[in-house]
C-alpha cells in the first residue's frame, strides 16, 4: 500500500520545526509502524537527505523508548499498543498519517520526533523506590503478600515510562506515571513504610519538572500502552490525603 505521511521535522531543541510531507510506497501490512519508517528513511538516505530521527530500541513494546503521536493519538490507534508493536495492517492504502513528537513543556524536543523525557527519571529519583540496602534483607518468603496486593502492584509497575500519558494529557500532567509508581510501592508491605513521604516528594517533583495538574481528563489511560488505570490516580490522591492527615507537624 501507499501512504502519505506528514512528519514533524525539527533540527534541534531551539530550532523551529514543522510538518513535512513524505510518501511511503509499497508498504506491506506485515510491517510494523517503525519498519515502515525504516523504509522511508532508507529512501531518504539514498537520495542524500537526512533520515527522520525517532526514538526506539526494543521494538517489542517493553522498553518504553518509542514515542510518536500518530493521527493525534500517542502510540497510534490500536489500544494498549506501543508504536513499535503497531502494525501496518491497521492502515489502508491511500491513508494520510500525521506523526508528531510527544508534546509537553517537560519534554522538550531534541530532534524531529525525539524528546527529552529525563523529567520522568527525576520524579522517580525524588522517591520512587524502597530505601533498601543491598544485602541484609530477610528471606523472600518472610513477609507474605496477598496475591491480590501483589497483582495490583504488578498491574501498576507494568508502566514502561514511555510518557504517552503526558503526551495525551491536555494538561501535560505526569499523574498517571507517578500514580503507577505510588500504587506499585504502596501495595507492598515493604513500600508502605515510606508511602507518606514518597507521595509528597514525588508530586512535588512532578510540579518542579513543569508537568501540569491532573484535572481528570482520563486521556492518559486511553493512550497508555500498558493499560495503567486512572484508578491509580485516585489511589495517589488517597495516599496524599492520608499523608496530610498523618503529617500534621
Amino acid at each position: 500500500m501507499n501512504l502519505t505521511l506528514y512528519i514533524w521535522r525539527q533540527k534541534g531543541p531551539d530550532k523551529k520545526g514543522g510538518l513535512q510531507q513524505f510518501k511511503a510506497e509499497n508498504i506491506s501490512p506485515e510491517m510494523s509502524f517503525l519498519e515502515m519508517l525504516d523504509v522511508v528513511n532508507e529512501q531518504l538516505i539514498k537520495i542524500g537527505q537526512e533520515p527522520i530521527a525517532f526514538d526506539h530500541d526494543c521494538r517489542e513494546g517493553i522498553c518504553g523508548m518509542c514515542s510518536q503521536v500518530i493521527n493525534g493519538v500517542p502510540h497510534g490507534p490500536q489500544e494498549r499498543t506501543t508504536v513499535c508493536q503497531l502494525h501496518m495492517r491497521h492502515f489502508k492504502h491511500g491513508d494520510s498519517i500525521y506523526i508528531e513528537p510527544w508534546r509537553a513543556r517537560a519534554f522538550p524536543v531534541i530532534k524531529d520526533l525525539i524528546v527529552d523525557r529525563s523529567a520522568l527519571d527525576r520524579i522517580i529519583q525524588a522517591g520512587g523506590y524502597i530505601s533498601v540496602h543491598t544485602g541484609g534483607v530477610p528471606d523472600a518468603n518472610a513477609v507474605l503478600i496477598s496475591k491480590k496486593s501483589a497483582d495490583t502492584a504488578m498491574d501498576a509497575s507494568e508502566c514502561i515510562g514511555c510518557g504517552a500519558c503526558v503526551a495525551a494529557c491536555p494538561n501535560g500532567s505526569a499523574m498517571l506515571f507517578t500514580a503507577a509508581k505510588i500504587t506499585h510501592l504502596a501495595m507492598l508491605p515493604q513500600g508502605k513504610i515510606e508511602a507518606a513521604r514518597r507521595v509528597c516528594v514525588m508530586t512535588e517533583a512532578m510540579m518542579r519538572e513543569g508537568f501540569g495538574n491532573c484535572t481528570n481528563h482520563y486521556e492518559c489511560q486511553a493512550a497508555c500502552p500498558k493499560d495503567i488505570r486512572v484508578s491509580f490516580i485516585a489511589r495517589l490522591n488517597r495516599e496524599f490525603i492520608k499523608a496530610q492527615l498523618k503529617d500534621t507537624g
Binding site: 493519538v73 508534546r103 491536555p170 501540569g212 486511553a222
Partner: peptide
C-alpha cells in the same frame, strides 16, 4: 496547565 502544554498537536484526537 496551559504552561505545561505550550504547543499543541497539528492533529489531536480526544479519546476520553
Amino acid at each position: 496547565n496551559r504552561k505545561a502544554k505550550p504547543e499543541g498537536y497539528a492533529v489531536k484526537q480526544d479519546l476520553r
